[in-house]
Design a protein around this nucleic acid. Structure first.
Lengths: 208, 208
DNA sequence: GCCGATATTGTCCATCGGTACAGGGTGTGA
DNA sequence: TCACACCCTGTACCGATGGACAATATCGGC
């Protein structure tokens, strides 16, 4: 059975920094992503990943799927980038931070992530919120026709479909199961007299 | 100088819950926003605000300015709403959470906020990220000319897809096999950087 | 004549989407 | 209290879809 905290970095200085900060939790140190992939990672483990690892796989690599399913991944970069942060967090990472953040912050991240939550730095959070505000302003106006007979939830799902989201996307975003998404969609289809999501998307956008 | 913690709620049950969870930090309990406004709030204090306070001012109230400038405000609602969360966080609150979150979570929020960071729950975070991703997708490509790189046949198939036709429909209409339809679609997907017919339909209709 | 772009078709297979059974939980109005 | 609407979830099935390998044929240009 593996330890509950795993640090992965090829940079000795960074490894020392992390070990010093997290000295009160038992952590195992690995030198590459390949090393990590050979381990059997215990469910619920916290994995600290150096974003500058030479062998860090791209986002679409299959190894991420199992890792993100089992472990809680903290991605730490010496050069944090906003777009990268959004991409990784959206993919399922539990935190994105500066690799050389101070020890208190690192400990805090460890605590937050270990308890199943997501940690995000203040600046990044402000940027995300501003973006969301802007996006909300664009969509605001209420729809009359197609939405009339649909329940709140059905409308919400329909709007997401109309943006091109898959059932799984919607499930994640609404925090419900894919099955429930299907239920709402089936109800919406029946009410609107259509049979598939594409027709629904066209309806929502006022086409046909 | 000790950083103080102020709890503001009119609900005795909630107040007890908070006091029990945060028993290891010295906290002052107030019963209304008006009470809070009469205090001189020490800079860096953490203020826990019950979002269901009867006298909670609206977002544009002037009192928020000074409060948010001085203190780190945790807004806790018994009925957390996504839009409210975004609005408050964007306004400068340091956290938005469920008022009756478990004690461990409340302590964690206190720690994170006290150190100057922002705390956001997992579900809300997922929603924010999905929204940001979608907003980015809207801005980035912005192709008015979806047809430019497509061959005649690919455009023809794409237009039919955009009307809601299935591969079989298109095959019949164009007098080709379903397999060929798939080939044209695959080519169009690759050229447009998308992966499914719904995205294609949205593009053709000038959405996204 | 060869090369590249286009159009066509094939098989195989993993995943997605939609439907058909099923059920449990909550809140509201009669 | 009971009916009803709404929300949520489960298993199972099957057709539609999209990607990964192909291959063949035509046509225009170098």
């Amino acid at each position: 059975m593996s330890v509950s905290v795993i640090l992965v970095s090829h940079d000795p200085g960074l490894a020392r920094h992390w070990q010093a900060a997290l000295s009160d939790v038992p952590a195992r140190l690995l030198g590459s992503f390949a090393d990590l992939h050979q381990q059997s990672v215990q469910a619920g483990s916290v994995v600290w990943l150096d974003a500058d690892l030479p062998d860090l796989p791209r986002g679409d690599d299959a190894r991420w799927v199992s890792l993100l399913a089992d472990a809680r991944v903290v991605l730490a970069s010496a050069n944090p980038q906003r777009d990268a942060a959004v991409a990784w967090l959206e993919k399922g990472c539990a935190a994105y931070c500066h690799a050389f953040a101070d020890a208190d912050t690192l400990r805090q991240i460890q605590d937050v992530v270990a308890s199943g939550n997501v940690w995000v730095g203040r600046e990044l959070m402000q940027q995300l919120l501003a973006t969301v505000q802007r996006a909300a302003a664009v969509r605001a106006p209420a729809q009359p026709d197609w939405a009339r007979d649909l329940t709140e939830r059905e409308q919400e799902v329909a709007r997401l479909v109309a943006q091109g989201a898959s059932n799984r996307d919607i499930a994640n975003q609404c925090n419900i199961t894919e099955r429930t998404v299907k239920a709402h969609l089936a109800a919406a289809f029946a009410k609107l007299g259509i049979t598939d999501r594409l027709q629904l998307a066209l309806r929502v956008h006022g086409i046909q």
